[in-house]
């Protein structure tokens, strides 16, 4: 579903990604781990077609970037620590707006379905500016899955959430993943990543330093795997 070959990304003289290879099969839930500055967000922005590769090949859902970026964007949902929503619109108006941009058919019924999934159907008329951080993040997920994407990218979705909101987000993420979508999530929260993901990749100094599936991992200690990957 995602194929990345020798991806390099430079900003001026600074090289953030250094010939990175990455491959994700359909339906996998990959936790992309790594320290601050490892290049996780840059990598996700390249996958999301928000940033062009300097070198290398990137294919998402069968379409090459950047040449077929519109086709990729139609098959992709993105959730970041920023809400990508409009504070002066209600939850329903936000989803209506994005549904129009994605040409979602049966707009109203799909919005109702999504609001029920993220547990905001009773707050549909409320302005986003009155939402808590957790509710805003759940609505962000609603926005990202509105057009039924094959691939969803989560960039630090737990940033700024309290314990209750994080647990609620866990439930939404599990539901989204169970629907057979391919998920790539960056996170600093190893326990949460271990709980949700089926594969763990450690990004360090611009390359994938280590990769292990839940099965190959054998229920071992993710923290020691992570530390070994960074040390190696």
């Amino acid at each position: 579903m995602i194929e990345v070959y020798k991806l390099t990304k430079r900003f001026g003289t600074k090289t953030v990604l250094r010939g990175l290879d990455f491959d994700v099969r359909a339906g996998e839930f990959v936790a992309l781990l790594g320290p601050n500055g490892a290049g996780k967000t840059t990598f996700l922005r390249v996958l999301a077609s928000l940033s062009r590769p300097t070198f290398g090949e990137v294919t998402v859902a069968g379409h090459k970037l950047p040449a077929e970026s519109a086709q990729v964007r139609a098959r992709l949902g993105v959730v970041s620590h920023l809400p990508l929503l409009y504070a002066d619109l209600s939850a329903e108006e936000n989803l209506q707006f994005f549904a129009r941009l994605y040409a979602v058919s049966s707009l109203q019924s799909r919005i109702t379905e999504v609001l029920e999934l993220v547990g905001l159907d009773t707050r549909r008329k409320d302005l986003v500016r009155n939402f808590s951080r957790g509710m805003t993040q759940r609505l962000s997920i609603g926005r990202a899955i509105l057009h039924d994407p094959q691939v969803i990218l989560f960039d630090e979705p737990y940033t700024g959430l309290d314990q209750d909101a994080s647990e609620m987000l866990d439930d939404v993420l599990r539901t989204v993943a169970k629907q057979g979508r391919t998920v790539v999530m960056t996170s600093h929260d190893l326990a949460r990543a271990e709980d949700l993901a089926t594969r763990f990749d450690v990004l360090s100094r611009g390359v994938i330093a280590a990769s292990a599936t839940r099965d190959s991992f054998g229920g071992g200690n993710l923290l020691s795997f992570y530390k070994q990957a960074l040390a190696g």
Partner: peptide, 17 residues
């Protein structure tokens, strides 16, 4: 308004011209 809440990325992510 578009930049501060990341909404510009939301627009750029849409499959539109």
């Amino acid at each position: 308004v578009e930049k501060d809440r990341g909404s510009l990325d939301g627009l750029l992510l849409a499959p539109i011209d």
